[in-house]
């Protein structure tokens, strides 16, 4: 188990380092920041002074080392707009996004896994067909359409739910559903297929021959094995959601999260914020992947023990 964990950690660190480097290079490719941000009305002396101040006259290699040093000590620069450290600007938004992500993942798991299990058990009856219909409908519906339909129904016509912000629990309902929609659909289908696969295995027959209750056969033996597949799917989907999924939904509901911040900073050309926002999201994805790998090993002894 320890070598496996070490491997996961090393893999994550290498990935992060690669992401830092790519982010650095990508931002340097976009030209001289002074020209873009400060634009006209700058004297030549003032321009040069700024270039010196920001150490943009140093070689790319030195800049890179400086960037890495800053990254190590947690300094990623100041926001052009707010004049505050970007770590603070992004940090303020982190928890709001995290809350929404956790709520969505929670809802997804609570809905999709039971649905998938039901879909597998009753695959030949109307229950199974209904589950698959829900799953297909969810898959076909983009989150922004779902959001707009919900806003129209529950806020505009019925006036039940608030649309903007994240101050109360009621605010969570629509964004959470909008974020989970596609995820529920995908996970239901994966769970169903993994369950069908697991329930067709020989050890399920062994479990029944022992005289176990059907519920235990399905949940302990069936889901216990299907869980290995399901965990990897959850991990992939959540990472995807953390990376890009929240941008659309956070903007529709004016959710004060990282997704909204990223869009705004891109529009306002607040590159330090954008750069650190991207790094934050990348860290989140790497962390989620690492957690998935570890959970995967816990679910499947063949993986856990193979490396030790």
């Amino acid at each position: 188990m320890i070598p496996y964990l070490a491997r996961v950690v090393v893999k994550s660190v290498v990935t992060l380092f690669a992401i830092f480097t790519v982010t650095f290079i990508a931002t340097r490719l976009s030209g001289n920041p002074i020209d873009t941000f400060l634009g006209e009305g700058l004297t030549t002396e003032g321009r040069e002074e700024l270039i010196r101040y920001f150490q943009l006259d140093a070689s790319l290699w030195q800049q890179y080392l400086a960037f890495l040093r800053g990254a190590m000590s947690g300094e990623f620069g100041l926001s052009f707009i707010d004049r505050r450290p970007v770590t603070q600007v992004v940090g303020d938004r982190l928890w709001a996004s995290g809350q929404l992500l956790l709520a969505s993942v929670g809802l997804t798991v609570l809905v999709a896994i039971p649905l998938g299990v039901l879909g597998a058990i009753y695959r030949k009856s109307w229950v199974g067909s209904a589950v698959m219909m829900i799953a297909f409908a969810g898959y076909a519906m983009p989150s922004f359409i779902l959001s707009i339909l919900m806003v129209l129904t529950f806020s505009y016509w019925l006036n039940w739910l608030p649309v903007v912000g994240n101050s109360t629990l009621l605010h969570f309902i629509m964004p959470t559903i909008a974020m989970s929609g596609v995820l529920v659909a995908a996970l239901t289908r994966f769970t169903r297929n993994a369950m069908l696969d697991a329930l067709g295995q020989d050890f399920i027959r062994t479990a029944r021959a022992k005289g176990l209750r059907e519920s235990r056969v399905v949940l302990r033996h069936g889901l216990g094995n299907a869980g290995v597949t399901v965990i990897s799917v959850i991990g992939l989907q959540v990472a995807g959601l953390a990376a890009a999924g929240s941008v659309v939904v956070e903007n529709i509901f004016s959710w004060p999260g990282i997704g909204q911040l990223l869009v705004n900073s891109a529009l306002e050309r607040d590159y330090p914020v954008l750069q650190f926002g991207v790094i934050t999201v990348a860290i989140a994805v790497v962390v989620i992947n690492a957690i998935t790998d570890i959970a995967y090993a816990f679910a499947d002894p063949r993986i856990r023990l193979a490396h030790s």
């Binding site: 050890f203 062994t206 005289g211 002894p301």
Partner: peptide, 26 residues
């Protein structure tokens, strides 16, 4: 009643020992 019988009074072993045990349980 059938479940009470299975594994207690009548037990069964199968052909494929490689796949007849649950791989994720000790």
């Amino acid at each position: 009643q059938l479940r009470a019988l299975r594994g207690d009074r009548i037990a069964m072993i199968f052909q494929e020992p490689m796949t007849s045990l649950n791989p994720v349980m000790t």
